[in-house]
Amino acid sequence: MSVNNTPRVDLAVIADLISPKARVLDVGCGDGALLDLLEHDKGVDGRGIEISQRGVNECVARGLSVIQGDADSDLIDYPDKGFDYVVLSQTLQATRNPKLVLDQMLRIGDRAIISFPNFGHWRVRLSLLLKGRMPVTKDLPYSWYDTPNIHFCTIRDFVHLCEEVGATMESARALDANGQKIGLSMPWWFWNFFGQQGVFLLRR
């Protein structure tokens, strides 16, 4: 979550997917906003991993159980099914090996929750079509050469990845720029065009 300036409109949607008192690991927990929300509102037993030391120190100072670590290399240390939910919010596109990370999440957690910016959103498509340059938007403000987002995908791409790693989709949502769920009964192509973010609840 500390990767982009994306407003955390997905937090409430993610929190909705999590049952009270659950054991939750938030991978890329940033300043701990989601963990804080979950601990206060749902009484969860929350843990976090965050790559930036500054984020970690902020989390610990506000009383959260957070360690400095990297989604790509450190998930391997956690035991099988140690958590009810493993959350990866706005971080998938910044990992070196998204497939491996997803695989580890499904191993560690009973369920995995992933949210990510949809690179198939019409604004992104339009920007590339008209300007012919890699899109730089309000929410994804980096130029191609200095972006931490090295593995962008569209909602459709992600659905493919889920099939490849053998994940079952329990729930899928597309959110607009304000975090509102859009067209629940709409087909994938619609979400892939109008969804600013995708939020998925997976299990294996």
Binding site: D45, R47, Q53, V56, N57, C59, V60, L64, S65, V66, I67, Q68, G69, D74, D77, Y78, P79, G82
Partner: peptide, 17 residues
């Protein structure tokens, strides 16, 4: 920290610069 995670313990870890 790795061992504590492996044991499923509740752990925070800060490295001070």
């Amino acid at each position: 920290v790795r061992a504590l995670n492996g044991a499923g313990a509740s752990v925070s870890f800060v490295e001070i610069d």
